[in-house]
Nucleic acid binder design. Structure first.
Lengths: 164, 164
DNA sequence: GCTGAAAAGCATCGCCT
DNA sequence: AGGCGATGCTTTTCAGC
């Protein structure tokens, strides 16, 4: 291999000091806080605080900012998870399944599970009929062996990201 | 029943027109966009756009804003889900379990599952040892009958919220 | 890498349509 | 309800430490 410079396009573990962690904790809790308020909370003046935020964004530590919406207010009354078992662990089969379900707008998360050939999905549906339709589409998909659905009836905690 | 006024503290389904949905879609995709840019994108001038955003926030349609962080950059290399079965479906038992696990910082989500006595948790851990410790803590918790862990080895899609 | 000041841009209010 | 104009802050850059 050719010698590699220190800089890669996405350094896996950029050095994060205590100030960075405080900034990240604040932005994870409130992503729309102004930079001056953020600076005050972490004990910095605005310019260096902004520079750190930009650096964290460019390093990929901050992947983006999102409004958290109430699904029920948008007429998505059903949230459910599905554990999907495929009939093969071949890469091509796994990739094809991923490509199919990630294209469905109702599939919000798609995680491959250790152990081979299983996926965990999070889906949203407008009502029970919609949920049934989605489950049927999963069950009927090409390489799917079995589908176990877990419908959430109450979410006691829904914290984003990681503990800081 | 006494006649009820139109205004409740949290109207379940506030009327959302097409402009509101466009605003919500933009803010879900980029929660840190400025109001003027948001207004441009949805085809409004800044003041009415901001008024709508404030109304959506106050109605609870927008629950908050969060930075999305890279868990690996923060030294959380393991994300896993746990399906936890309890030995009873009594409300007191369910509530006690919820109260316990939601207090753990590594538990990021806690969903009660339809069918009785089961929970689905999302947890993050710094490494496999940490994951094992968390699993043991779950297994050993007072009313827990069984724990099935689903470790994610790859996340193909992780979209926030709902499709708009 | 931080501070402080200055310029440009933004949020937000009052009023009008 | 949406738009316009004015005001005060915020963001962002640039010296200087």
């Amino acid at each position: 291999m050719a010698p590699m410079g220190k800089e890669t396009t996405h350094p896996r573990k950029p050095e994060l000091d205590a100030m960075d962690l405080r900034i990240l904790a604040e932005l994870q809790a409130d992503g729309r806080i102004t930079n001056v308020e953020l600076a005050q909370r972490v004990g910095l003046s605005a310019p260096p605080c902004l520079r750190r935020v930009r650096r964290l964004e460019e390093a990929g530590v901050i992947r983006g900012y999102h409004a958290e919406l109430d699904p029920a207010a948008l007429d998505f009354d059903v949230t459910f998870f599905a554990i999907v078992g495929l009939e093969s662990q071949k890469q091509a089969v796994l990739d094809a399944f991923e490509a199919e379900v990630t294209a469905w707008p109702e599939v919000r998360e798609c995680h491959m599970i250790r152990g081979g050939g299983d996926f965990l999905l999070r889906l949203v549906a407008r009502d029970t009929a919609h949920e049934n339709e989605l489950t049927s589409r999963l069950t009927g998909a090409a390489t799917v062996l079995r589908v176990q659905t877990l419908q959430t009836i109450r979410t006691a905690k829904n914290a984003p990201g990681v503990p800081l």
